Simulated scan of single mutants.
Amino acid sequence: MMLGNDAAWSLPATAYNDPARFATERRMIFETNWLLFTWSGRLPEPGDYVTGTLAGHNIFVMRGDDGQVRAFHNVCRHRAAELVRGESGHCGGLVTCPYHSWGYLRDGRLHRAVNFGSETVFDPAEWGLIQADCEEWRGLVLVRIARGGPSVAEWLGPVADFAAPFPLEKQKFFSKKERVVDVDWKIYGENYLECYHCRAMHPGLCASLDIDRYQIDVYDRDKFFHLHAPARNPDATQGTYLYRFPFLMLNLYDWGSSIATVEPLGPGRIRHINWYFFEDISPEREAENRRSADWSAEIITEDLEVITAVQRNMNAGIFQQAPLSRAEEYAVIAFDRMCEDALSPPEPIVVAAE
């Protein structure tokens, strides 16, 4: 089939279910980008920690005695035991390994290695916990597995400017919804980045927003997408949607925020994570906040019902590749290009001999 200038080819079906490709994505995309981990309200005091997984790594973040939040691999340096357990908790003065009682300070430095005698000396910094990069941004905690690189503010780029009018710091956690689904992270991202499907699949969204004026602005250099449409009437939900590659989603409304991400669990499998925040979470607002969160969650459910079947068909082997409309799916084309570019090693810099 020949494609004209108004169309482009999608990624091949194997891109969404190949274990070797997923392993490369984990190394070159997931580990090198800032990833959403938790929110600051879960870490009010020194010693408070939250656990989780990122790019297949067992991680915990903890607020130190100096007030800074740090991220550590949840791995003892002695025999690789898991140091802290549960979704969240509080450590005393030391993080103590439950296996052989090695102890670490809240900043990660080794404090004690039990029963090694006086002749074996461990450098506290060299034998401290293995760190990942960690920063707080407007009440959110982001972690990057690979150390070094741009700050969160630099990585976000224009996202920070678009989010500036929304009072994220004033918003309080209301609820969360997490679900494990058999969908590749790229299929989810592609679906998010087009409204070609909105009239067929999202009656609630179409009733609220003027879908005929729905736009997706692509910022290739910043790996960022701004999705927006005016409300159908002044009383309807006003919102803007920000997607930072590979999978940070800030859905900002006049009533609060729906902060979302995915955790890739393997080729063709993700955990979808959604947190809802409101300025007023008093009992008087409970019912209204619940309606707003449920409205947002229903749109995601409508998407997942269709794209899980897309994944099954990709896995079955009959579907090979799709033509994409440059009029309707231009952001999908840009997203796929970002995926491919991220897996391509940079061109070597050639210096001419003098």
Rank of each mutant, 00 (worst) to 15 (best):
V143E: 00
W127I: 03
E178G: 05
K186N: 11
K172H: 13
P124S: 10
E135T: 06
D182K: 15
R199E: 04
K172T: 11
K177D: 03
D161T: 15
G148A: 08
D161R: 15
I130W: 11
P158G: 14
I145Y: 02
S175N: 10
A164I: 00
S208P: 00
A153F: 06
D184A: 09
C206H: 13
L168K: 02
E190I: 01
F174A: 13
A153P: 06
A146S: 07
L156D: 05
V183N: 03
E126P: 09
V152D: 01
D212C: 06
V141P: 00
G139H: 01
G189F: 01
E136C: 10
C134V: 08
E169Q: 12
P167F: 05
V159T: 14
R147H: 14
C195T: 01
F173C: 04
V141S: 03
G128I: 06
Y188C: 06
V143L: 01
A160L: 05
P167Q: 05
A163Y: 02
L193F: 05
R179Y: 01
V143R: 01
L205V: 14
K177N: 10
C195H: 02
R138E: 08
G189E: 00
K176M: 13
Y196L: 07
P150N: 11
A132C: 15
I187P: 01
Q171C: 12
H202D: 09
E135H: 12
E194P: 02
R147Y: 08
M201E: 10
E169L: 06
W155R: 03
A207C: 04
V143A: 03
